[in-house]
Design a protein around this nucleic acid. Structure first.
Length: 434
RNA sequence: GGCGCUAUCGUCUAGAGGCCUAGGACACAGCCCUCUCAAGGCUGGAACACGGGUUCGAAUCCCGUUAGCGCUACCA
């Protein structure tokens, strides 16, 4: 009964879709399509403080731009709060979890104390020692409590699809909280509860989740469910070897769209960042990627994001693309440059210029100089000089309406319960170029 | 500090004991082509982190060291 794989991409809407998340989405998509499996999209919005619908929309837009679709969802994790709580209750009833009346403040203070003393804070299971009557008394008095999972002292190991066998000891893991004092679930419980409910068979996610995995496996065991296959893909680093973050400049997929990167090139580049087809092939169109993608080809070590190579690859795609596919994006960039095509047929110009360009922006600039009436337009050499996103100043033009960077300015402006419909056919067609 | 992960040219990588005096690509340098050019052609420099094993033989297997990264939240 080897059912077809069920995978999921589960971003949390607490920021824009960064390249690391995009690559994780790509890998999941590629594997689902390669294996004839199913891809589920789940928005993990249980962090109410930071999650916004605007972020969700940006993530959806980013996936659409990349041409990645899904088969089920999007599901919003927040909608399953009752199931999460029920799972926690069950663990409580079975004696696999316990109530802890320590407040967040007290916990924080204890951590501070440990730190001041140069010690590592370890939760001491004091709540476990509380007499039953005392627990009942406090609860009757209305004292808030969290539910902690009692991590069994046993070996917790799994055969990771990219790292091989990884082993932890239960004693090295603190009894972690699974249900907050307000009754909502913490990430590790919510994830396991949902993955079980959605019958997920393969969990492919970032390397930074390796430390969460033993906790989740312990939860699978306690809940009595078989665990899925885990595949931890390495993180993406900046040129300084640190995890790619905002200070490295462009990290959101939307930034690349604005730079004139074409989705096909972005996909191809991202696929090769941490995965190898096993030989020297580099320009791999989508169908090739799908055909050749395997878990075994995923690298175990982190990869540095090389913008220059992305631009080179983009240039390869640009020269392959038909001028007509580039027309709309180039016109947008032209408008951004404040240049008016004057109703002139740009196709011949685009065709002449594209084999040597590296970005759509570059094509627009080359076209602009060749437009009559603007013989001396100064060349901004946009891809060579520090781009605007790197210096913090707003992009040359008018992108704001397109909401690529709403994370900085907006809160949640969309309706929370709006069910995202699947409008893929059109999104897919438009993802060919920019 | 503890636990875990990782370790081939500057970067992405091929390599799964002999095919490796380590291959490809980006970048870089030089030359050529050329009205410009980030395009194209040719050439070049550039790596198995270190130390021990195992083996007739190790980039490939084992151990240790070092370094980098991650986690160690009522974040995800």
């Amino acid at each position: 009964m080897p059912a077809t794989p069920r995978l999921r991409f589960a971003p949390s809407p607490t920021g824009y879709l960064h390249v690391g998340g995009a690559r994780t989405a790509l890998f999941n998509w590629l594997y689902a399509r390669h294996s004839g499996g199913t891809l589920v999209l789940r928005i993990e919005d249980t962090d109410r403080e930071r999650s916004t619908d605007a972020h969700t929309q940006v993530i959806l837009d980013g996936l659409a731009w990349l041409g990645l679709d899904w088969d089920e969802g999007p599901f919003f994790q927040g909608a399953y709060a009752e199931r999460h709580a029920a799972d926690a209750r069950r663990l409580l009833d079975e004696g696999k979890a316990y109530k802890d009346f320590l407040t967040a403040g007290e916990l924080e203070a204890a951590r501070e104390r440990a730190k001041a003393a140069g010690q590592t804070f370890r939760y001491d299971r004091r709540a476990l020692a509380l007499p039953e009557e005392e627990v009942a008394r406090r609860e009757a008095a209305g004292a808030p409590y969290t539910i902690r999972f009692a991590v069994p002292d046993e070996e917790i190991a799994w055969d990771d699809a990219v790292h091989g066998r990884i082993s932890w000891q239960g004693r090295d893991i603190d009894d972690f909280i699974i249900l907050r004092s307000d009754g909502t679930a913490i990430y590790n419980l919510a994830v396991v509860s949902d993955d079980v409910a959605m019958r997920i068979t393969h969990v492919m996610r970032g390397d930074d989740h390796i430390a969460n995995t033993p906790k989740q496996i312990a939860l699978y065991r306690a809940l009595g469910h078989p665990e899925p296959v885990f595949a931890h893909v390495p993180v993406i680093l900046g040129t300084d070897g640190k995890k790619l973050s905002k200070r490295h400049g462009a990290t959101a997929v939307g930034d690349y769209q604005h730079m004139g990167i074409v989705p096909a090139a972005m996909r191809n580049f991202l696929a090769l960042l941490g995965w190898s087809p096993g030989n020297d092939d580099e320009i791999l169109p989508l169908d090739e990627l799908v055909r050749r993608f395997t878990l075994e080809g995923i690298q175990a070590r982190p990869a540095v994001f090389d913008l220059t190579k992305l631009e080179w690859m983009n240039g390869q795609y640009l020269s392959q693309l038909d001028a007509r596919d580039l027309l709309a994006p180039v016109e947008r960039q032209l408008a951004a440059l404040g240049v008016d095509g004057g109703g002139r047929d740009l196709l011949p110009l685009i065709g002449a210029v594209k084999p040597r360009a590296r970005t759509v922006t570059g094509i627009a600039e080359q076209v602009a100089v060749r437009l009559p009436g603007r013989p001396s337009l100064a060349m901004p050499r946009a891809t060579r000089s520090p781009p605007s996103w790197a210096t913090g100043s707003p992009p040359v033009s008018r992108w704001p309406a397109r909401s690529w960077r709403p994370s900085m300015t907006t809160g949640g402006s969309l309706r929370r319960s709006r069910p995202h419909s699947r409008r893929w056919p059109s999104a897919r067609a438009s993802s060919l170029a920019t």
